[in-house]
Design a protein around this nucleic acid. Sequence first.
RNA 1: GGGCCCGUAGCUUAGCCAGGUUGAGCGCACGGCUGAUAACCGUGAGGUCACGCGUUCAAAUCGCGUCGGGCCCA
Length: 1053
Amino acid sequence: MITEVAGQYNAQDLENRIRQMWEEAQTYRKVRENRVGKRKFFFVDGPPYTTGRIHLGTAWNKVIKDSILRYKSMNCFDVKDRPGWDMHGLPIEVKVEESFGFRSKRDIEAYGVDKFIQRCKEFALRQKDDMTAQFKMLGAWMDWDDPYMTLKNEYIEAAWWTLKKAHEHNLLERGLRVVNWCPRCQTAIADSEVEYWDETDYSIYVKFPVEGEENTYIVIWTTTPWTIPANVAVAVNPTFQYSKVRAWKDGTAEELIIASDLVESVLKEGRYKDYELLGTLSAKEMQELKYTHPLQDLVPGQKSIKHGVYAADFVTAENTGCVHIAPGHGLEDYELGLEMGLDIFCPVGEDGRYTADAGERYIGKYVKEADGDVILDLEERSKLLAQGRLTHRYGHCWRCKTPIIFIATSQWFLRISDLRDKMLDEVSKVTWYPEWAGSARFSDWINNARDWCISRQRYWGIPLPIWTCPACGHIEVIGTAAELEERSGQKLVDLHRPEVDAVLLDCPCGGKMKRSPDVFDVWFDSAVASWATLHFPSDEKQFEEWWPADFITEGHDQTRGWFYSQLGASMVSFGRAPYKSVLMHGFTLDDQGRKMSKSIGNVVQPEEVVQKYGADILRFYVLGANAPWEDLHFSWDAVENTSRMLNIFWNAYRFALPYMILDKFDASKADLSKYQSSLRAEDRWILSRVNSLIEEVTRSMEQYQLHRIVRSISDFILEDLSRWYIQLIRPRTWIEQEDPDKLAAYATIYEVLVTLSKIMAPFTPFLSESIYQNLVRGLDPNAPQSVHMCSWPGPKKELIDKRLEASMALVREISEAASNARQKKARKLRWPVLEIVIAPCKDDVDLDNLEPVLKGQTNSKKITVLSPGEKPKMKLEMAPVHRKIGPVHKGDAKLVVEALRIADASKIKRQLDEEGEAHLSIGDKSYTITREMVQFSELPPENLSAAEFSLGFVYVDITLTPELESEGYSREIIRRIQDMRKELDLRVEDRISAVVDIESKPILDLAMRQKEHIASEVRAAKFELGLGLELKGKLVKDWEIEGVCVRIGIDLI
RNA sequence: GGGCCCGUAGCUUAGCCAGGUUGAGCGCACGGCUGAUAACCGUGAGGUCACGCGUUCAAAUCGCGUCGGGCCCA
């Protein structure tokens, strides 16, 4: 049984009901089981970090995933859809630290690492549960009962196994490197964890005294005075020329060495009054210089260092052209240092404070606060040439926002820079949506790939499974828990710190190997997701069956993140990309394109949208707002629009239900094949359109052009279904007998709605399910239990008729033009017109059996299609051209003009055409009229109103006849009675009695001709029409129709 | 400094890959429709398709450059 539905589309109620139904019937599980053994579609979920709240971007991300998975499932794929959770790492440590008011690692150690880990774990698990509920609310169907979690032993093993592989392939390396260092978190952080924003720093010019030359200095520039104590060299560009100048300031002179092109600007910075050029030095000559450190007396570590000048390509023609090199504090500095064999001097500890190597003056000072001291000390020693402030982009720890520093520390690296070419090759084999995400953006990132620092000096993470022997330096990487148990004889319940720290292994040399105390960079966790999610390495069978992933999709920030980390990890362990296709999507921004942030107060919670509008509306909105790979500018207005659109769909769905129920529409009547001979052209048209729609949606879906899908579906619903087809079939639904014409319309709209419920199922799963349950399951209890178990509908090609679609498009255009023309002459659509004339300019108008439709929609008695170029009979207008008449007829010009005004234009034209001139007689005089004295124009006659359409013009003949007027008045009366029925809240099938009193006799006579028609249209069993009638009934109203008072009384019988 | 993306009506955008009359929605004004009705439709006003140069019979679309915005990198 089909049942009637609520008046308004109430998404919340509907979604709650459907959610409950799915829950009770275990629908999700059944849908997936339904496809077991079919073609495999391995999707890997990029694990969201367990922050506790999903934001709009996360919601969008999961909606995209869910829509695609539902689509694949309908297309008979056995879908792997394990969701994931990224649960380790600094963000959670920072949150837990905050909750206890901890300020440093020392606080954590004092509290107890075991308890701290426990808190982190509890925190992550709680957040995961909260977020799961939010994802479910969006209708995201994934395996929520069995997600992969990075904190599970099994997952940790996947990371261990991968590192062991890297070690076996000789890609794991320990080394002193300059890394991004967060002094607060006291750990190395990855390039991808550095957040840049503007910061104002010192900008100083320092003079380094040249050895063996009196009062001579190399001038360098830096924004980090605190790195001066660690200076070991100066770099110059091998292609630059340098100058030695004598410069005067405050009555004294000194000799300065600066890149030639920059002398003027540097001296200006230093406020020198004057200077003279002493000579130039080539880069080669520069490299022969030695200098002494400007703070040599303060920094004892500097005593043993030889300071020289070296060539480096990275030196640019900015500032002084001489670059201060501190290999302990800069990436390029370090690399230069390595190349040139310089000391890697780093007098700064992990806490960001100077060590004893920096000397008494600086020891214990936090480097970012020591800038002032360094400047002061330089000034005291007359080594400061100038100082100022500079605003520039500076890196910060992405979690605690502390400015990062560069320090040289000992870390573990994956040597993936060696794999660069292979990675590029793999990237080109992956299918990217859009194409440039891979070929341009990602490839560019990989081209700049450096070795991956995977070690972090923290607690809450996957422990590095690297054991080293303090005695002989032997290294062993453990791949699984079982292997660890075998090697150590200890079985660990939990593989996290601190338990694992206590495990010692025997070294072949007889010593005891200890675990390297670091944990993994959290990016490494998710990097192994594609095999960890398959329970690899413990379950190799699943890996064989599923890996690599068919599809992943994430935001464009993941270019440097998960797309990359997965590729890196997969390259070291399997030598290939772990995914076959990638859809890169955008960011969610506010309606002005700004990032959503708490400080601006423009954050929109997905829950807020769901509560106001419903999950389907949020889903349909985010999918359709723009192309997936572009940033989404969230707009409440646009959500409102989406809501309105789906409400129209709801109304369209609801429209036919009462009639169908009334007519006991059942499975036997739903069979379209029975009505082949009764289908009208418009039925065949909408069936063609809906099948074309299937084609469009399928084609867009195969390219993940999600926005086009939403557009196609919306257009179909609004334009084809609601604004057109339903309008066309309304009269047929009012027929009261078992009429094949009516049943054909029912069967057609049924077919259309059921098809829509299927093709919308991936995108608006709740609404689709609800319609499907009513229309399909309501008639056939043996139909698949859920719309999501149905197969994706293939287009029925035999129903697609492009000619018919084109003709209907034309009919719509002509109807619009006709109503435009009516409006020009103020003739309402309710009033029929005699004729509509279609006059195409060039192309034939092919109405393809749609003339009745056009007649009905334009409310006209006759349709005439002219052949191209042909015009309806036009009225010729003629205007006198004064400046041509005047010179010829002089004093009589006025008379001539007047005569032309009343003359017969067509007669004049004929004379002109035939004889080249015309003659006008006024009184007894004759005047000659030449062609240039008049201007002709063709106008439609008074009774025709014209409007343009794409192929030409449409003319509406608005001549009134008594027949037309009679129909017009009757329709006016019908509409008002219908309005009153509505007011009394009557049901469609209710019968009424009606009395209509019309105060004007002529109009009454006109209406009288249609008495029977009016009575039947308004279902009046008793109907009186007259003048001076007594009005009775439950509802009596006075109306005014075309200036005439009409009083109507109706009552339910 | 480099890479990628974006720039179309007051706002949000479609069209761009595949060159051939820039199309919608919101808002505004006027009109219409009415058994889907707290809905809907039509018409109007509003576009140097960021700018410049080039390719072409033809450029919003392709190429080069400039400017502005975003993301990422250095």
